[in-house]
């Protein structure tokens, strides 16, 4: 594989939240083009890594982003909205669409001044959203809310998309649809994807980074990782099934996930 230029680089990034040391020196590089999958067990620090890029949690170490003009920006010390305006889109773990706003208002809100707004592209990908544009987002199903969250990403011209568990809690059919849309988006924009569903990872990831206990324990080609069941099991606690089915191939049980999610949301509040 030819070396693509780096887009996002984290070096020795530490995050401490209310007494716990969550990231303990993360080093990773996302190269321009393709999809980099950020993998790891629950509580390994995937979401915190994404949040540290956006400045949603305070971090130490170095986080650098190379913009479209080739200039490299240090992200720490910038406010979240300034980071985003460099061309970084974010779809958070729990979608976080604005339930009290209509679908159309959710999209209008996402329009950024530094970018053109591609409402046509979004409605082309998700015709359902156009039909429901006057509906309150809070009354949408989980899958439809995820479409709104992804639509917000694709509305603006971005250099990098940070997508955190886009298929979480979705029915298999919707998982496939979301994966389709992201795969199409990946043709134009680089994606850093946090994903537990290894079928989705297999489908689109070019690179993979595995974190465990706040550190990067493996980085390399995603197909190479998934081709090695022993290593996958060792790193993620689950073996990749070879198949085309989507759905239940996830890296850990729902019960632990619930637990970690509640812990994380409190950490999120602290950093919010």
């Amino acid at each position: 594989m030819s070396e693509r230029p780096p887009l996002l680089r984290l070096a020795d990034v530490h995050v401490r939240l209310s007494g716990s040391h969550i990231l303990q020196g993360v080093d990773l590089t996302v190269r321009r083009g393709g999809v980099t999958a950020l993998l790891g067990r629950n509580g390994a620090g995937k979401t915190t890594t994404v949040k540290s890029v956006l400045g949603l949690v305070p971090s130490s170490g170095t986080i650098e982003f190379t913009g479209g003009d080739g200039r490299t920006h240090r992200l720490q010390g910038r406010r979240t909205h300034e980071v985003v305006r460099l061309g970084i889109g974010y779809a958070p773990e729990d979608r976080e669409v604005f339930g009290g706003l209509t679908v159309a208002e959710n999209l209008t809100l996402a329009e950024r001044r530094d970018s053109a707004h591609h409402h046509d592209r979004v409605y082309d990908l998700f015709p359902e959203l156009e039909q429901r544009s006057r509906q309150l987002a809070g009354t949408l199903s989980g899958g439809q809310q995820q479409m709104v969250a992804i639509a917000r990403l694709l509305l603006n011209d971005n250099q990098l998309l940070l997508v955190d568990e886009p298929t979480k809690g979705l029915a298999p059919l919707l998982v496939a649809e979301v994966a389709d849309v992201l795969a199409r988006a990946a043709e134009e924009v680089t994606i850093l994807l946090v994903e537990q569903n290894l079928t989705v990872v297999r489908r689109m990831a070019t690179d993979a980074v595995v974190v465990d206990q706040g550190r990067v324990v493996w980085a390399g080609s995603a197909p190479e990782l998934l081709a090695d069941p022993d290593r996958t099991r060792e790193l993620l606690g689950v073996a990749p099934s070879g198949g085309a089915h989507t759905g239940s191939e996830r890296a850990s049980s729902p019960t632990t996930e619930q637990h970690v999610r509640s812990r994380r949301s409190s950490a999120g509040e602290a950093g919010a």
């Binding site: 209310s18 604005f98 009290g100 809070g138 949301s265 509040e269």
Partner: peptide, 16 residues
Amino acid sequence: EAAGRGVGVGAGQPRD
């Protein structure tokens, strides 16, 4: 942290 949470029940939940 506690101060921003507002009213006991329903804090952190989307409000109308």
